[in-house]
């Protein structure tokens, strides 16, 4: 299991995240292999869904309707969830593409810290 799978597995195991209890919505992560600009939805990307319902979490390894889409290179995503890269600077550089609700995108990134895969960030 690589860090990406480990991240989604950890989130699935958490079931509830109190710091997300003020938000509901679904984030679709489209993880591509290549230049990081992403490919059209579902086209060759490894797609994961995290649904948040007032802090209750569910995870699915498939595609579907979402309020926020986060599209990035799989290797970069691995670096983000393990704290070796930062999401916001990556977005400003054009390496992470966000579609839909930006607040949900920021709040759901709290999950990166709460999985325990990143206690510190060095990047």
């Amino acid at each position: 299991m690589d860090a990406v799978e480990q991240f989604f597995t950890e989130v699935k195991g958490r079931e509830y995240e109190p710091t997300l209890r003020r938000i509901s919505g679904t984030v679709r992560y489209e993880l591509t292999n290549g230049n990081g600009k992403g490919s059209p939805s579902g086209n060759g990307a490894d797609t994961w869904m995290i649904s948040i319902d007032k802090g209750d979490l569910s995870v699915a390894h498939r595609t579907g309707k979402a309020d926020t889409i986060v599209r990035t290179d799989r290797k970069l995503f691995e670096r983000i969830v393990t704290g070796r890269a930062a999401a916001m600077s990556s977005m400003l550089r054009g390496l992470v593409f966000i579609e839909g609700d930006p607040e949900l995108a920021v709040l759901s990134s709290r999950l990166f810290a709460t999985t325990g895969m990143m206690e510190v960030r060095n990047g």
Partner: peptide, 14 residues
């Protein structure tokens, strides 16, 4: 609140 710090990050003093 949305941007509240979540991790230790020396570069960002977070």
């Amino acid at each position: 609140a949305t941007w509240q710090g979540t991790v230790l990050d020396d570069f960002r003093d977070e």
